[in-house]
Lab assay of single mutants.
Amino acid sequence: MLEGKVKWSNSEKGFGFIEVEGQDDVFVHFSAIQGEGFKTLEEGQAVSFEIVEGNRGPQAANVTKEA
């Protein structure tokens, strides 16, 4: 699992980007967020995730919010 911080997200469009130190930003779709209820990410929020190869390149999977 990698750790990063949410660079920005748009809940209306359903995606955002995660900033990882020393690496390119990672695309995240809201379907990759683990948990119940409305899935949102806040700018600056710490997250853990895996990287998978998506249709348009690397993207985050199994995203969990850190406490």
Rank of each mutant, 00 (worst) to 15 (best):
N55R: 13
W8Y: 14
I51Y: 05
D24R: 13
E50Q: 14
N62P: 00
G57L: 02
A67S: 12
F27P: 01
A60N: 02
F30L: 05
V47D: 01
R56K: 11
M1E: 06
T40M: 10
Q45R: 04
V63W: 00
E19H: 10
G16F: 14
G14P: 03
E53Y: 14
F17Y: 06
E12P: 06
E50V: 13
S48E: 06
G54I: 05
A67K: 12
G37V: 08
W8S: 00
K13Y: 08
G57W: 04
I18A: 02
N62S: 08
V26E: 00
F49H: 00
I51K: 06
L41Y: 04
L2T: 09
D25S: 05
S48C: 14
I33N: 02
M1S: 09
F30H: 05
K39H: 10
L41W: 04
G4S: 00
G37E: 09
L2W: 11
L41F: 06
G14H: 11
K5S: 08
I18E: 01
E21I: 11
H29G: 04
D25K: 03
Q59R: 09
D25N: 06
A32P: 03
S31I: 04
S31L: 05
G16E: 00
S11T: 13
A32Q: 09
E53A: 12
T64C: 11
D25G: 04
F49Y: 02
G54S: 10
E66W: 13
L41R: 01
G16M: 04
V47S: 00
V28A: 05
M1T: 12
Q23L: 12
A67I: 13
E50C: 14
H29I: 06
F30T: 03
G22Y: 05
G44R: 03
S31N: 07
K5D: 04
D24W: 09
K7Q: 04
A61D: 06
P58M: 09
G37W: 08
S9G: 05
K65Q: 09
G4H: 01
T64K: 14
S9C: 15
Q59N: 05
T40P: 04
V6Q: 01
R56N: 10
S31E: 04
R56W: 15
L41H: 03
G44Y: 03
V28K: 00
V6S: 00
G35L: 05
E36H: 11
G14C: 13
K13A: 09
P58A: 07
S9Y: 15
S31V: 04
F17D: 00
V26W: 02
L2F: 13
Q59A: 07
M1C: 11
F30E: 03
P58Y: 09
A60W: 00
V52H: 07
A60M: 01
A67G: 12
S48N: 09
K5G: 04
V63L: 07
H29E: 05
V6T: 02
V63H: 01
T64S: 10
A46H: 14
A46E: 09
E12F: 11
E21H: 11
F49T: 01
I51H: 01
E53W: 15
F30K: 04
A67P: 14
G4R: 00
H29N: 05
E19A: 14
V63K: 00
D24I: 11
V28I: 08
E19P: 02
N62I: 03
V26A: 02
Q59E: 12
V28Y: 14
K65W: 11
S11G: 09
G37P: 07
I33W: 05
G57Q: 02
E19W: 10
G37L: 09
I18M: 01
T40R: 09
V63S: 02
S9T: 15
G4A: 01
Q45Y: 06
V20P: 00
Q34F: 08
E53L: 14
F15Q: 01
K39R: 11
F38T: 13
G4D: 03
S31A: 07
L2N: 07
D25I: 05
N62W: 07
G35S: 08
L2H: 11
A46S: 12
H29A: 07
A61G: 07
F17E: 02
A60S: 02
K7M: 03
F38M: 12
V47C: 05
F15W: 15
T64V: 14
E42D: 10
F27W: 05
G35E: 08
E36F: 10
G35N: 09
F49R: 00
S48F: 13
L41N: 01
I18F: 02
G16C: 05
Q23E: 08
G22D: 07
Q23A: 11
G16W: 15
L41T: 00
S48V: 13
Q34C: 13
D24F: 12
H29C: 12
E53P: 11
I33Q: 02
K13L: 11
E12H: 11
Q23F: 13
E3N: 14
K65P: 12
I51A: 02
F30S: 03
G4Y: 03
T40I: 11
G16Y: 09
Q59Y: 11
A32V: 07
L2C: 12
F17S: 01
E12M: 11
R56C: 14
Q45H: 06
E66A: 14
G57P: 03
N10F: 08
V6L: 07
I51C: 07
T40G: 08
D25V: 06
K39Y: 08
E50W: 14
V6E: 03
E3T: 15
R56T: 07
A60F: 01
N55Q: 12
F15C: 05
E19Q: 13
S11P: 15
G14Q: 11
E42T: 13
L2V: 11
E43S: 12
E66S: 15
V6R: 00
I51M: 08
E53N: 12
H29K: 04
N10K: 05
S11N: 12
E21W: 12
V63N: 00
V47K: 00
T64L: 10
Q34Y: 08
I33P: 00
N55A: 14
A46T: 14
W8T: 00
G57C: 06
V47P: 02
I33K: 00
K5F: 13
N55F: 15
V6N: 02
E3V: 15
N10M: 06
F38L: 13
I33R: 00
E43P: 15
E3Q: 15
G35V: 06
E12C: 14
Q34W: 07
E12I: 12
A67C: 13
G54A: 05
F30Y: 10
N55D: 11
Q34L: 14
G37Q: 08
S31M: 06
H29W: 08
N10L: 07
E19K: 12
K65T: 12
V63A: 03
G4P: 00
D25A: 06
E12W: 10
F15S: 01
L41D: 01
K7D: 04
E53Q: 14
G22H: 04
V52L: 07
D25M: 06
A61T: 09
G54V: 04
H29R: 03
D25E: 04
G14D: 03
K13F: 08
K13R: 11
F38G: 10
E36S: 11
S31H: 07
V26K: 02
G4K: 00
N10T: 05
E43T: 15
G54T: 13
I18T: 02
T64Q: 12
K13M: 10
G44N: 05
E19M: 11
